[in-house]
């Protein structure tokens, strides 16, 4: 049971960090489909920097920086050139996938798994009931609280929400919606980069080009279900991971691997469906 809880908590971390980033962007008015891209970039940067400096913390910082830079680029294309955010986000996902493969192939001469022996693992912290978890797990859950506070209690957070929900009205009171959007992409990118670092320096312990395994897309759904609020989003992530963890354990019994892989996506759809049923019930009639 403890092992199950520990597994859930560890596996939730990258998804949680990513969906917090996504929720942050969404609050500023951008549906960020490119989250997967920045997990991947962050994971590669963390692995390479970690190996070069023999420091997991520097690696993590490099991951966050790379993610932030990448997401800022995406934000600039969207705000500066007026591109459609969905298509651009999908493009960035494919772009970073190709770029990471290309870099790993040319710099290290391997395709697929990049395992650098000199790369240290993330430091672990031991908790009373749950056993040892890495520090990014603690950071992620602390960020849930920080983000709630930031969005509800600080002027910058309130400006961000205002710019996201009513860009035109925000402009009349002197808030620049594009600037808020760019700020949100930097934060979101850094969070995705941290998620990548957590994967390559923590959970997986190496870099591979499918390291994110669709987490960016599941995160997208998680903050939709959590309606961009940090705590509901975090609980959705925990719930989805717990379901997946259960499915992996049930795999020993009978579920084939390929179907178990579809599990998070199916549970996302079911959750979204249940949510619409509830909303409909609350409004006492049909939507639309």
């Amino acid at each position: 049971m403890n092992a199950f809880l520990q597994g859930c908590l560890l596996q939730t971390t990258p998804l949680l960090l990513t969906s917090l980033g996504g929720a942050f962007c969404r609050t500023a008015g951008l549906v960020n489909v490119g989250l997967d891209a920045f997990i991947l970039v962050g994971a590669l940067a963390a692995e390479v920097t970690g190996a070069a400096t023999h420091s997991a913390l520097l690696g993590t910082a490099a991951g966050a920086l790379a993610g932030a830079l990448g997401c800022f680029l995406m934000g600039s294309v969207i705000t500066g050139l007026g591109a459609n955010p969905i298509v651009t986000g999908l493009g960035f996902n494919l772009f970073s996938h190709a770029l990471c493969r290309l870099l790993v192939k040319t710099a290290f001469g391997v395709s697929g798994l990049l395992l650098l022996a000199s790369c240290p693992k993330l430091p672990a912290v031991s908790l009373p009931v749950l056993g040892s978890v890495d520090i990014l797990t603690l950071l992620a859950w602390a960020l849930v609280l920080v983000m709630t506070w930031f969005l509800d209690r600080t002027w910058l957070g309130l400006h961000l929400s205002a710019a996201g929900s009513e860009p035109a009205m925000a402009r009349t009171v002197g808030i620049s919606a594009p600037r808020m959007l760019l700020f949100s992409t930097v934060v979101a990118g850094a969070l995705c980069g941290l998620a990548g670092a957590d994967l390559s320096l923590g959970i997986v312990g190496a870099f591979s080009d499918d390291i994110s395994s669709g987490r960016g897309y599941v995160a997208l759904a998680a903050f939709y279900i959590g309606r961009n609020r940090p705590l509901p989003t975090a609980l959705t992530c925990l719930f989805l991971t717990a379901l997946e963890e259960l499915a992996t354990r049930a795999q020993v019994l009978n579920i084939p691997v390929s179907l178990a892989q579809a599990f998070p996506y199916i549970s996302v759809l079911v959750l979204m469906l249940l949510q619409t049923l509830r909303t409909r019930h609350r409004h006492g009639g049909t939507l639309s």
Binding site: A83, P85, V87, G91, F95, L99, L102
Partner: peptide, 27 residues
């Protein structure tokens, strides 16, 4: 081969950009 994949992906990134005011409409 990844070089061609890079170009494909950057086509997707830039596909919806319109330099003649089209972009605003799409956005």
């Amino acid at each position: 081969e990844e070089v061609t994949r890079l170009i494909e992906a950057s086509f997707i990134i830039f596909a919806s950009v319109r330099f003649t005011g089209f972009g605003r409409r799409l956005r």
